[in-house]
């Protein structure tokens, strides 16, 4: 079993250090902003100044997870769909407009996708396995698959999460490359997964990704059948914009994009919602269906033991 022990989300919701994120959720308007914790409590000011929003969010969420975990993480798996966009754009401007041979390297150094994971290892002085996955809308799901594999291989405290940041330039991509029916947002959600239950009650039971699925309903039903379940067992279904399956009237459904806003690793925040909902209710099974990009389907099943 893969127990979820600790969660830290920094999002456009009041989600950091709250006992039940569901009690605070509000549908996002167009002008919402990240509700940031006091980063200075987590990162020394000298380091903080250099860090872009996605790095601040990812690092702080990870430190919070470590603060709530006794042992050091023995594996770290990070998903990010578009990586460190602010520093990427900054360095594009730097070298396209350079008038001398001397360029500041900071933005370049911090532009690679694994700066998030690298900063986490540096911040926590952690020498363990450290992986960065990027696969558009299923970036979090593949990072989670890696984390569960780490547990199967014998790891005991795995940090898994995702982080993505919004930059104004992304708005130019709407609506052709990025849909414009939800506000573009930033977000980081990190989880500590362990094979041991101790005080935890909610598990990641299974996760899968499907590429170019021709029959999404069939894929989801098959995924559940592999767990000896049917759609009738699902009491909470979280989805991205359109629910691709028919559920019965007992199933609570929630379009997580209304709360996370749009970034391609937002299904991590959906997993936070699903966890808290199971933990604070009688519900046993929650399913996260992520087809934010219609040609890639992520399916994650949480269960309460």
């Amino acid at each position: 079993m893969y127990y979820i022990h600790s969660i830290a989300s920094i999002s456009h919701q009041d989600s950091f250090n709250v006992s039940n994120v569901c009690s605070k959720l509000e549908k996002l308007g167009q002008e919402s902003e990240v509700i940031a914790p006091n980063y200075k409590e987590y990162v020394p000011p000298a380091s903080l100044r250099r860090l872009s929003p996605v790095l601040r969010m990812g690092l702080t969420a990870s430190i919070e997870c470590q603060n709530n975990t006794e042992k050091e993480f023995d594996a770290i798996s990070v998903g990010t769909a578009l990586g460190c966009l602010r520093d990427t754009e900054k360095f594009l401007v730097t070298f396209h407009t350079a008038t001398s041979d001397f360029l500041s390297p900071t933005a370049f150094i911090q532009s690679t996708h694994n700066t998030i994971g690298g900063q986490i290892s540096l911040g926590l002085k952690n020498h363990a396995y450290n992986m960065t996955h990027t696969q558009n809308n299923v970036s979090f799901e593949v990072a989670l698959m890696d984390a569960l594999m780490c547990i199967d291989e014998g790891k005991k405290q795995v940090l898994v999460g995702s982080a993505d940041e919004q930059i104004p330039f992304l708005e130019l991509m709407q609506p052709n490359l990025i849909p414009d029916n939800y506000p573009l947002t930033s977000g980081a959600s990190f989880f500590v997964i362990s094979p041991e239950a101790s005080s935890a009650s909610v598990c990641v039971q299974a996760v899968a990704v499907r590429f170019n699925p021709t029959d999404k309903t069939g894929e989801i039903e098959q995924f559940l059948a592999n767990q000896q379940l049917t759609l009738n067992d699902i009491e909470l279904a979280l989805y991205a914009d359109q629910l691709p399956v028919e559920t019965n009237e007992k199933t609570e459904t929630l379009n997580f994009l209304e709360y996370s806003g749009l970034h391609y690793s937002a299904s991590a925040f959906a997993m936070h919602i699903a966890h808290d909902s199971l933990k604070h209710s009688d519900k046993r099974y929650a399913l996260i269906i992520n087809d934010m990009c219609s040609d890639k389907l992520g399916i994650t099943l949480l269960s309460k033991q």
Binding site: A81, G83, N114, T134
Partner: peptide
């Protein structure tokens, strides 16, 4: 642009669709 997309394009060229993943650790 997306690194993940470059892998999806390579997979498409090979006809592979059971699983695609991109690692980006410099």
């Amino acid at each position: 642009h997306s690194s993940g997309t470059s892998s999806e394009q390579i997979a498409q060229e090979l006809g592979i669709s059971d699983f695609v993943n991109t690692i980006s650790t410099a």
